[in-house]
Design a protein around this nucleic acid. Structure first.
Lengths: 218, 218
DNA sequence: CTGCATCCGGGCCGATACTG
DNA sequence: CAGTATCGGCCCGGATGCAG
C-alpha cells in the first residue's frame, strides 16, 4: 500500500493494516493459528492471490510468522492489534441488527463479540455451560469461578442450548432479542434463557476508556 | 466501497470506514468540526475529489453531518469511532520511533496521543502548565485538579516550555527520550523537565481491556 | 488437494484542471 | 473557498495454471 506520508500514529498504523482485507486476516489469526485453506474458508470472498499477497506483506512487517510452511500465526506485535479489532467489533455490533441475505457467516466470527459480551472477571456470575449452535460449527460458553471461556466444540453438560439462524443468535446473545421474539424468529431454546442475561456484561457496548476521553472537546 | 459481504461486526464496520482516507478524516473531525479547507490542510496528500467523495459517503452513512455548507462535524455515531482511532493511535505509537524525512506533520495530530498519555483522572498529579511547540501550531497541556486538558494555543504562565522537531517532541512526551538525549536532538527545554514524567500515565501503551482478554487462546 | 503465481478486465485512487 | 470533472495508472477481483 502506498504510504500516507504523515507523521501520525493513526496514519502509520494504517500504512501497515489499512489495506483491504488485512484487518480481516488479523481477525482470523487472532482466534488461532491458521493454515492457508482455513484462512480462505474464514475469509469468504477474498481472492487467493490477495490472501497470499497480504500474508507476505504482514510477514515482512513482522505481524505474522509462519512456523511450518502454510501455518500462519500472529507475532506478539500482531496480537496487539486485538485491541483495534475489538473496538471495530464493538462499533460494528450495532450494524448487525439486520442481516443481508447474501452475507456469508462463520460461527467463529462470534468468538470476539462473545469475549466482549461475556469476558472479564465477575465473581458473582453463576456457573453454567451454554451451547451455541449457529452456522458451521458449535461454540460453547463456559462460566466457572467468575471467568467465562469460549471455545469451539459441543458442551459437556449444558444448562442452556441455543440453536438459531445467525442474526437471531446474535440478537439473543447480545440481549437485543427477548425469549419470545427469538422463538418467533426460529430460535430453539433448551434450558433457562435467563442465564444469558446473568452472564452478560452490561457495559460491553461502552468505550473502555469511558466517555471522559471519548467526547470531543467543543 | 464494495461490501465484504460477511455477517461479522468487523467486516460491517470496515464496510463503512475501511476505505482509504476515511479513518484519517474521522481523526481530523474527532478533534473539532472542520471546514473543507481545514480538512485539506489536516490531510496532506488527499486528492480533493476523494475528500469530497468520502465526506459524501460518511454523510450518507450518518457518521458526518454538515451544519452550514462547508462545515463538517461528526454525528454521535461518528464520535463513537473515537475508540477505534485511539486504539490505532496506541498501536501505531511504536511506529513513530523514526520519522521519514518526507513525512508531513501537523501539531494537531499530537492531540489524540496526548490524551492517551496524559488523559484520565489522577488526583495525585501536580498542577502545571506545559507549552508544546512543534510543527505548525502551539499546544498547551494544562493539569488542574487531577485532570489534564490539551488545547491549541499558547500557555498563560507555563512551568515548562518544550520546543523541538516533531520526532524529538514525541520522544520527550512519550517518555522514550530523556532530557539529555532530547537536547542532543535539538530540543529546547525551559523549566523542569521532570514535570512530564509526573503527569504521564504509565499504562498508556497498554490494552485498556487488559491482557486477559487480549491474549489469543492456544 | 493444498498453496500459491500469473494474467487480465474493471473499478478505485491520485493528480490536475476547472467552475460557481 | 468549496467543491466538480477528467483521465492515467494502479490495485482489486475473478479465473486459471501449476508445482509439491
Amino acid at each position: 500500500m502506498r504510504s500516507y506520508g504523515q507523521y501520525c500514529a493513526v496514519a502509520k498504523a494504517l500504512d501497515l493494516v489499512g489495506d483491504r482485507w488485512t484487518l480481516l486476516i488479523v481477525r482470523e489469526l487472532l482466534l488461532r493459528p491458521c493454515r492457508y485453506g482455513e484462512l480462505q474458508d474464514g475469509l469468504p470472498g477474498i481472492a487467493t492471490n490477495l490472501l497470499a499477497e497480504r500474508l507476505r506483506a504482514l510477514e515482512e512487517d513482522g505481524l505474522v510468522a509462519r512456523d511450518e510452511p502454510g501455518c500462519y500465526r500472529l507475532t506478539e506485535r500482531g496480537q496487539q492489534l486485538g485491541a483495534v479489532v475489538r473496538e471495530l467489533t464493538r462499533w460494528g455490533a450495532l450494524l448487525m441488527a439486520e442481516k443481508d441475505s447474501s452475507d456469508a457467516f462463520r460461527s467463529r466470527w462470534l468468538e470476539i463479540p462473545l469475549e466482549l459480551m461475556f469476558g472479564g472477571n465477575d465473581p458473582g456470575r453463576p456457573e453454567v455451560e451454554v451451547e451455541i449452535r449457529a452456522g458451521d460449527e458449535v461454540l460453547t460458553l463456559n462460566s466457572r469461578a467468575g471467568e467465562v471461556k469460549i471455545r469451539r466444540g459441543v458442551a459437556v453438560s449444558p444448562e442452556l442450548v441455543l440453536t438459531a439462524p445467525p442474526d437471531t443468535m446474535i440478537g439473543m446473545l447480545s440481549g437485543g432479542l427477548d425469549k419470545k421474539a427469538a422463538l418467533e424468529q426460529g430460535a430453539s431454546i433448551l434450558g433457562d434463557f435467563r442465564h444469558l442475561a446473568r452472564l452478560r456484561r452490561r457495559d460491553w457496548l461502552e468505550d473502555p476508556l469511558g466517555p471522559a476521553l471519548s467526547t470531543s472537546r467543543r
